[in-house]
Write a protein that binds this DNA or RNA. Structure first.
Lengths: 111, 111
DNA sequence: ACATTAAGTTACTTTATGTAAGTTAGTATA
DNA sequence: TATACTAACTTACATAAAGTAACTTAATGT
């Protein structure tokens, strides 16, 4: 028995953002257009899932895929206006995380 | 080869929010303390996963679980200060969704 | 005594994600 | 000319997360 009374637009946005990696991909592209391998190595996602996500985000109009006929061909992903307009969401998350997560000592320099 | 250069605090926040249902649970609790079944039926989540999420969010200090010794006992979930402070994130998502998703005609009243 | 309700839990199935190897096209190097 | 190399993916297979439905427990209510 499902009777979610939640606004369908909001639900769509939530289901987009609560897919794993989606927010990180968008975050990454906020710093400018990037290529497949750049995104992959900077956020540590598997090629398979990144490929899925990029297709998905492209079909939703959040990012665009551009083929640059260099040799060999370069494929560049960037945010559309729709994607760019998600910046406030990402910044809100970033801001919250700075307030609520305390510094750790992840460095194992001194054993 | 993983070398994510992303701020660990931000990553934590993202991994919290990109778990399915997490944002909707928080959204739901923004309108006040609620009981298990209320949350379940309002967002359409399964009991199993809601149970998981509530434990998770509680252990992360985002929500609190309160046992009210009525008869039978009432269990009420509400946002902590940490949880409450996620409101700007949720509102940013809400706002974006209103701008970027156009009205649909989900009603099948007129075939 | 039997049914009902809230708040879960359990067992099992389906879907999503991860891993690693393979593909394709176009050079670059031996 | 043959072998290597790189970017951008795919594919096949393994593991983890989510969904479904039935079950549990404790305390009523009929």
């Amino acid at each position: 028995m499902k009777q979610p009374t939640i606004c369908p637009k909001f639900e769509k946005a939530i289901s987009l953002l609560s897919q794993r990696w989606t927010a990180l991909v968008i975050y990454q592209l906020l710093s400018g257009p990037q290529r497949f391998n750049e995104i992959q190595s900077s956020i540590g996602i598997s090629g398979k899932v990144l490929s899925d996500r990029l297709k998905d985000l492209e079909s939703q109009g959040v990012i665009k895929r551009e083929v640059i006929p260099d040799t060999p061909v370069i494929i560049e992903y960037s945010l559309t206006e729709k994607g760019q307009s998600m910046e406030p969401i990402i910044r809100a998350i970033e801001n919250w995380s700075q307030v609520w997560y305390k510094e750790e000592t992840p460095s194992s320099d001194t054993p």
